[in-house]
Write a protein that binds this DNA or RNA. Structure first.
Length: 199
DNA sequence: CTGACGATTCACT
DNA sequence: GTGAATCGTCAGC
């Protein structure tokens, strides 16, 4: 179980990093409650030239400041006043690239996740969808800008490799406002995985 | 200060 | 398939 290094996140190709995150295990460790899930669905947000990104056109504000941080940080924000969405910041400082984790497959701490979400065993929606997975893993805006090289939130590789023909690229979800950029194939999913969200 | 709205989810028809 | 929930952020006045 190798924790991903800072260098993994600092690379400049956000699409490549997004693809490599598939199959890795996202772990949270809050109040001695350890939960984790295998990443099966991600979306890349390509900085200031990407209309779907919060940092489009270099829109630097207090909220988006985290995306400009050095790679390897967590960007967590509130959506629709209800849902906390978890992103991984990539690239060097001042380059606002980020990857939204949209779904994971529960690996351990499942009883804790069911308690947090009030869901029953075997419910595939436990960690399916960005709002659900944040709730199950206990992620909230309190942890915005926490480093993924620390001990509270981190990502490990357990040796599982996702082969190229198991990865499917599709347009991103819920970004219709982004015009032409809404069509970009920046969403990556693991083929046939029941925890992938969307239709 | 005010108002519009969102990288969503769930309950209902 | 449709609509409500719900609040921080941001642009505009």
């Amino acid at each position: 179980m190798e924790k991903l290094s800072l260098e993994f996140y600092l690379r400049n190709d956000v699409l490549q990093v997004a693809k490599e995150l598939l199959g890795k295990v996202l772990i949270t460790n809050f109040n001695k409650k350890r939960t984790g899930g295998r990443i099966v669905e991600v979306e890349a947000y390509n900085g200031i030239i990407d209309k779907a990104s919060h940092a489009y056109n270099d829109r630097r504000t207090k909220r988006t400041e985290t995306i400009y941080a050095e790679g390897g940080a967590a960007y967590i924000y509130l959506c629709y006043g209800i849902h906390h969405l978890f992103n991984v910041v990539t690239n060097i400082k001042n380059v606002p690239h980020a990857i939204l984790i949209r779904a994971v497959e529960p690996v351990f701490g499942i009883d804790i996740m069911m308690k947090r979400t009030n869901k029953k065993k075997g419910n595939v929606s436990l960690t399916r969808g960005p709002g659900n997975l944040s709730k199950a893993l206990g992620l909230s805006t309190l942890y915005n800008e926490v480093s993924l090289t620390g001990d509270e939130i981190y990502i490990v590789s357990d040796g599982v490799v996702v082969s190229k023909n198991e990865i499917i690229a599709t347009p991103r979800i819920g970004v219709d406002y982004a015009g032409k950029d809404a069509l970009l194939p920046y969403r990556f999913i693991i083929k046939d995985n029941p925890f992938v969200s969307g239709k």
